[in-house]
Design a protein around this nucleic acid. Structure first.
Length: 425
RNA sequence: GCGAGCGUAGCCAAGAGGUUAAGGCAGCGGGUUGUGGUCCCGCCAUUCGUGGGUUCGAGUCCCAUCGUUCGCCCCA
């Protein structure tokens, strides 16, 4: 023992799994690109204050989940727990808002100090999408459609979307007061967590899992009743827009998301196949955040999507695609081995995926490995071939074998390519 | 931060106080020193996450610790 292990809550993504990640990233680029979104890359750590001010001191994310440390210059640094705050900081710092509506996306690791469990780690990855500078309900629809398009392009099914409006900060404050008034007489009957939430974040009581609390919640005032006329009209427009582009959703008036900055539209996409951590994608509108962080009044909406959870779902859907090798090169003897290196290079330059056997062991063993590599063809170089400047090409499926001059390999590349493709079908 | 389960080789896994720590997969070597996918043989844990304790004796019991899994909280 004594071997160093990955830190708790972090993990290695091994080659076999990376295939899924690459697939997800490729599809994200396609879907986002064709909606005219641009990638932005922001730092992995920021001043702690950014998150405290942006996400809200009262939230769990800031209160107990941040990876915060002091650097050598005595600054308080925090590993980003989400993307939005950093993107907004960047927008302000570079005056991107001056260029009109900004459609941005980002991906990479984010960090939250929590107990790991199914679908949850301390370092995980998100895909993040934001549209900044528009208050138009069509922006809400566009961004949500991007999430469903992306998930659909990956072939995921059995997802459901909850939609809600949390109104303006004012609407929410009035609702919050109403809730406190409603719950206070029941305080003793609420579960312990909810009693605590009554003072801190009464909206959270609404989705308590405790049975008795839920009985009390059943008669609690509804958030929708506290929305201003304007907020209600907005919410209706978003719903019409979603219906118009054929996106299914259900209204969930208890959907209140964790971060303080949300206004109006809030939504969440969930799956039943993820255990307790069912949320794959969550987001909403945050009209006040840019101003709160010192920028000009800039309405915005966006979402974050958990890539680990997504890949968990993807793995159930499709088996891992084996990485393919076209040609496996087998050689024995000093001269042959030297030539094999050159031949492999030539073939790679012609575009083939070529793996070379470095073992120097008996041909029999090398053939065994050739077979297991999944290669379509095997190139053989021994003393005889080295002497003659030739190479044997053996087709592993049929066992057929032919001889080619080494300097002809470039010329027959198109033919080889065709036959390799053919042998795979 | 709280609760519960688990921790034997690269992977899966038997073993439930007495002893040579089964077996399978993968890997490596050989049968076959230039021809694979089958087959046969051999090798692959002085040791059971770590530390301490109980006992004549512990992988098997107890304690602690670390890791891991699932759940709570919360979220992606």
């Amino acid at each position: 023992m004594g071997a160093i292990q990955a830190i708790r809550g972090t993990r290695d993504i091994l080659p076999e799994e990376v295939v899924y990640w690459q697939q997800v990233e490729a599809i994200a680029r396609t879907v986002l690109g064709r909606a005219a979104y641009h990638e932005i890359r922001v730092p992995i750590f920021e001043a702690t204050e950014l998150f405290e001010r942006g996400i809200g001191e009262a939230t769990d994310v800031v209160g107990k989940e941040m990876y915060t440390f002091t650097d050598r210059g005595d600054r308080s640094i925090t590993l980003r727990p989400e993307f939005t705050a950093g993107i907004v900081r960047s927008l302000i710092e570079h005056s991107l808002y001056a260029g009109g509506v900004q459609r941005l996306w980002a991906t990479g690791p984010v960090f939250r100090y929590e107990r790991p469990q199914a679908g949850r780690q301390r370092q995980f990855h998100q895909l993040d999408v934001e549209i900044l500078g528009s208050a138009d309900p069509r922006a809400d629809v566009e961004v949500i459609a991007l999430a469903t398009d992306f998930l659909q392009a990956l072939g995921l099914k059995n997802l459901r979307m909850d939609l809600n409006s949390v109104g303006t900060l004012g609407d929410r404050q009035r609702y919050r007061d109403a809730l406190v008034e409603y719950f206070t007489p029941y305080k003793a009957e609420l579960d312990a967590d909810s009693q605590d939430r009554l003072g801190r974040n009464p909206l959270r009581i609404l989705d308590s899992k405790d049975a008795r609390t839920q009985e009390i919640v059943a008669d609690a005032p509804s958030l929708l009743a506290y929305l201003s006329d304007d907020s209600q009209r907005r919410f209706a427009q978003v719903q019409q827009g979603l219906t118009g582009v054929g996106i299914a959703y259900q209204i969930n008036s208890r959907l209140v998301r964790g971060l303080d900055y949300y206004t109006h539209t809030a939504f969440e996409i969930q799956s039943d196949d993820l255990g307790a951590q069912a949320t794959v994608c969550g987001g909403g509108r945050y009209d006040g955040l840019v101003a709160q962080l010192g920028g000009p009044d800039t309405p915005a909406i966006g979402w974050g999507l958990g890539l680990e959870r997504l890949i968990l779902l993807l793995k159930e859907l499709q088996p891992a695609a084996a990485a393919t090798v076209d040609i496996y090169v087998v050689s024995r003897g000093d001269r042959a081995e030297a030539q094999a290196t050159q031949v492999a290079q030539t073939l790679r330059h012609s575009g083939f995926a070529v793996e070379i056997d470095l073992s120097g062991s008996a041909f029999g063993k090398q053939f065994k490995r050739a077979d297991r590599s999944g290669a379509a063809a095997c190139l053989i170089l021994g003393d005889a071939e080295a002497e003659a400047g030739t190479v044997q090409i053996k087709w592993l499926a049929s066992g057929d074998q032919e001889q080619v001059n080494q300097d002809q390999l470039g010329a027959i590349a198109p033919d080889l390519r065709q036959r390799i493709a053919h042998s795979r079908t």
